[in-house]
Simulated scan of single mutants.
Amino acid sequence: MQRDNMMFSNSMTLWTGALLILSVSLWSCTTAQSDGAADCCLTTSHRRIPQRVVTSFTIQTSDGVCRIPATIFVTKKGLKLCAPFPSENNWVSKLIDHILAAPVHRKPKGKKQRRQ
């Protein structure tokens, strides 16, 4: 009887250990996938992007999860366009300056006030 209890205890310990290892493995895979690696530019285009279609930008550096430095421009339609790093192309830095100089249009919160 004591031997059966010992075998049951050992198999429970084994199953608990296996379950712990499996859950840690799955958690680390999920964490690695959520690092934003899917949002990295893999290549850039030197083709100029018209100012009228761009609403914002982000800078991608190569010291994180992404492999190349790039500028990611976001269009009015939500497309992400990969351009060279600002120091590599003059038109990229001019487009960034244009975006930064544009006034921010904010919608008023709450009810509209009536004019009297």
Rank of each mutant, 00 (worst) to 15 (best):
C82L: 06
S9D: 11
A32P: 00
C41M: 09
N10C: 10
A18W: 08
A37G: 06
P108I: 01
T30S: 08
V74N: 05
V24A: 12
I72V: 15
P103W: 02
R48D: 08
A37H: 08
M12P: 03
G36A: 09
H98W: 11
T13H: 14
D39V: 08
L20V: 11
L14V: 07
H105G: 04
K76T: 07
L42T: 10
K77L: 05
P69F: 02
S62V: 01
R48T: 05
Q60H: 04
S11Y: 13
D63S: 09
M7K: 14
D4G: 11
S11P: 05
A38M: 07
G78S: 11
S23W: 04
F57W: 08
K80M: 03
C82V: 03
A37N: 06
I21D: 02
I99V: 13
R67V: 06
T55H: 02
V92D: 02
C66P: 02
S45D: 09
T55E: 07
A18N: 03
T55I: 14
S56K: 10
M1V: 11
S62R: 10
H105P: 08
A70Q: 00
M6G: 13
Q2N: 14
T13C: 14
G17L: 14
T75H: 04
C40R: 03
L79D: 14
P103T: 05
F73I: 01
H46Q: 05
R106L: 12
V92T: 04
F8T: 11
W91S: 04
G17E: 05
L42A: 10
A70K: 00
K80Y: 00
I68M: 02
W91G: 03
W27D: 02
F73D: 00
W27L: 12
R3E: 15
M1T: 09
R106Y: 07
R106F: 08
A83T: 00
P86C: 04
Q33V: 02
V74I: 10
K77Y: 06
H98D: 09
Q116M: 06
N89L: 10
L20N: 05
T16V: 12
W27V: 10
A102E: 04
T75L: 01
W15L: 15
T30V: 05
C41K: 04
D97K: 08
S9M: 15
I21A: 15
G110P: 03
S11H: 09
W91M: 01
P103K: 06
L100P: 00
D35E: 12
A70N: 00
V104N: 06
N90T: 13
P103E: 11
W15D: 00
